[in-house]
Amino acid sequence: MSVADLFNNMPGRFQADKAAGTTMGILFDLSGDEGGQWYVNIADGKLDVSQGAPAAVPSATVKMASEDFQALSSGSLNPMMAFMTGKIKVEGDLNSVMKFQSLVGF
């Protein structure tokens, strides 16, 4: 599945019942063939995805290769191991990224 497809399908993976009171914005900055920036905003029990950097400062920025994002999304890359080995770099609130992971099932 392409990176764009993964982001477009993300609202369907979103577990709104676990997101009560959660407000955050995560910017994904992906390098590689399918690289680019995608912004995922969670507020009012909804998840919205847009391509490009947001006007507001995100809660966190996740930097990684697009291939690693695809592997993470499919479950073939362990997120904790990817973070520990430097495949994923997080700027900002790491807790937001961990909460995000639980809300979209990565």
Rank of each mutant, 00 (worst) to 15 (best):
I26Q: 04
M84H: 00
K87R: 15
M1S: 11
S66W: 02
Q70Y: 00
L27C: 11
L77F: 07
A53H: 04
F28A: 07
Q101P: 04
A53L: 07
L103R: 02
E34W: 05
M10P: 03
A56C: 05
A43P: 05
P11H: 02
P54W: 05
L47Q: 13
S59E: 01
Q51Y: 03
G52L: 09
Y39T: 15
P54E: 07
V57E: 13
V90M: 07
E91P: 00
F69I: 04
V62Q: 07
G45I: 04
S2P: 08
N41Y: 12
G32S: 06
S74V: 00
T85L: 00
R13H: 12
G92S: 02
P58M: 05
F7S: 03
W38D: 11
S59C: 05
K89H: 02
F69G: 04
S74W: 01
A71E: 06
Q15H: 10
L77T: 00
K99M: 06
W38V: 10
G105D: 07
A19V: 01
R13Q: 12
A60N: 06
V49T: 11
N95K: 09
G86F: 08
T85C: 00
D68L: 06
S66M: 14
A55M: 10
M10V: 03
A43W: 06
V49F: 11
A71T: 00
V90D: 06
D68N: 12
V49M: 10
L27D: 05
A16W: 09
A19K: 08
K99H: 08
A82H: 01
S59W: 03
M81W: 01
G32I: 04
E34Q: 14
D44R: 11
K99R: 15
G105S: 07
I88C: 02
T22K: 15
S2K: 03
V97Q: 07
D48N: 15
Q51H: 04
L72Y: 03
N95T: 12
V40D: 05
Q15M: 06
L47K: 15
S31G: 15
I42N: 12
P79Y: 06
E67R: 10
L94I: 14
D17Q: 15
K99E: 14
V97N: 09
A55K: 12
M64T: 15
A4K: 12
S59T: 13
W38Q: 06
L72S: 03
A60V: 01
E67N: 14
V90T: 04
G75R: 02
V90F: 03
V90K: 12
K46D: 14
K87P: 03
Y39P: 00
Q15G: 05
V49D: 13
A53T: 13
M81S: 11
G35N: 07
Y39D: 09
L77H: 12
